[in-house]
Design a protein around this nucleic acid. Sequence first.
DNA 1: TTTCATATTTCACATTATGAAATTGATTGT
DNA 2: ACAATCAATTTCATAATGTGAAATATGAAA
Lengths: 252, 252
Amino acid sequence: MKNDNHSSIQVIDRAVGLLQALAQNDDSASLKILAADSGLHASTAFRILGALTVHGLVDKDTQGNYRLGTRLLTWGERVRSRMDVRVEARPVMEWLRDQVQETVNLTVREHDEVVYVDRAIGRRAIRVEQVVGSRAPLHVTAVGKLMLGRLGAAAWSAYAQRTGLPRFTDNTLSSPAALVQEIEQGLRDGYALDNEEAELGVGCIGVLIHDASGSVVAGLSISAPIERRDPAWIPLVQEAGRRLSARLGYHG
Amino acid sequence: MKNDNHSSIQVIDRAVGLLQALAQNDDSASLKILAADSGLHASTAFRILGALTVHGLVDKDTQGNYRLGTRLLTWGERVRSRMDVRVEARPVMEWLRDQVQETVNLTVREHDEVVYVDRAIGRRAIRVEQVVGSRAPLHVTAVGKLMLGRLGAAAWSAYAQRTGLPRFTDNTLSSPAALVQEIEQGLRDGYALDNEEAELGVGCIGVLIHDASGSVVAGLSISAPIERRDPAWIPLVQEAGRRLSARLGYHG
DNA sequence: TTTCATATTTCACATTATGAAATTGATTGT
DNA sequence: ACAATCAATTTCATAATGTGAAATATGAAA
C-alpha cells in the first residue's frame, strides 16, 4: 500500500482516475489526453481502459476515442431509484391502502430474502402488520416468488438447492416442481399470491416494481387475513404497481 | 493475464463483479453475501470494497452494509446527457437561429479545445460556418473562456502555461492577466463574447449548458460577422441556454 | 511514398494484491 | 453477566499480477 489510507488499491485508484478524466471532458477523449490527465504511462492507461471497456464502463466512439460507457447509466439509475423508491412509493401505498383498507407493504430483495422496507398500515382493528426491517424467504412470499422468477430458471433451481425450500406452513411450496410452476404462473399473470404459505391466516397479493432501466427494484403487496382477501383487489395492486413504476421512470 | 482476452485486469474484473452484485441486490448487501456472490475471499472483497468506497462508487448504510455509491449517479448522468444533448439542442438551436438569422453552434470541451459538434446554419448568404468536428482553443472562443472559467483558477493558469496563449488575431487575449479578467467577467455576466479573437471579422456570443447534476456539458453560441453582431441578442442566447439546460434536467 | 504521431504489443521484473490465519467486535443464547 | 458464535477487519509472507520502457503497427498528413 502506497499511503496511510489502507483502503487504497492502486489499480482501482488509477481506473477511477481515468473515469474521472472521462467525466470531466464533455465529449470523448484520446488515449494520449487520458494518459496525460491521469499521469499514467500510455501503455498502462491503454490496458486499464481496455479492461473497463470489456465491462461496459468505457466505450470507444467511431473515431476510436474513449468515453464513459452505458453500464454507468444502468448503475446510476440503480442509485437514483434506490433513493426514489421509498419516497415515490408512499403516496401510491396510501392510495392502495385506502382502496382496500388493508396493509400495503413495500419490499426489496436481498439475496434469498425479501426485506420489508416500508408499509401503509390497514385501518381495521384486526390486520396484518410486518415489522419494517424484518425478512422472509423469497419462496414463501408473493413478491418474492416474482423476484426469484425474474432472476431466471437457473437461479430458481440454485435457490431450491441452497435453501431446501423449508416449510413454514402446510401450504408452503416445498418441491422445486411446485415452485417452478408457481413462478411461471406468476410471471404470466403479472402478479402472485401468498396463500398462507408464510403464515397461517395471512394471504397476500403482490406485484413487481421496475425502474427506468427496466430492472426490478422492489415489490408491492397487500397483506390481509385470508378470509378477507379478495381477488377483486388484483387489478388495484397491478394499477398501483404500474403507477409506482411509472413514477420511477419505467415505461415498458 | 489469466485468459486469452488481453483486455483483462484481475482487480478491475473483481471490482466490477462486486459492483454488479450490488446492482443486482435491490437494497444494501453484507460483506459475506458480496464475497459469496462474487466468489472472492472475504478479505479480498473487503479491501476492494474499501477502495471503491473511498472513491464514492460504493458506500455503506447505517447498518454497515454496502450499496452502490452516488458517484455512479453522477457518471450515469454524464452518459445520459451526452446522449441527450445533441437531440435536445436541435430545436433550441433552430429557435435561436430563427430569432437572429445567424449561425448557432453547439460545442463541447475536449481538454484544451472546444469541438464543434452541431450547428444550425444562418439564413443569410454571408454567414459564419464552423465545420462540425473542427476545433478551436478555449481561450479564443466565447464558450471556451466560460468552460475554462468553470474549471477553477488553478486550471486557468495551468492552461496559460501549457498553451502559451497563442495569438490568432491582434484581438486574442494573450496575457494571463487579460484572460483571467475576461473569465471572471464572463462568469459574472453568465455569457461571454468573442471579439474577433479567433478570426478577424467574426464575433460570437456564448453561454454554458448544464445537465441535471449541474455539470457543464456543452456550450451554445451565435457566430456572426462582427458588424452584424448585436448586444440585443445576449438575452436570447441566455434564454436558449436556460431552455436547453432545463431540457437536460438542470434546475439551478 | 515517406514521415510523424498515436495506438498497441511485448516482456523482464518490481511491486502489488492475495488469501490464510489471527484478531476484534457485535450479536445471540444461557 | 458471561460464553459462544459469527461476521468484519487486520496482519503478513509470498505468489502472481500489473508495470513501464522499448519495439512494433497503424493511420493521417505532407
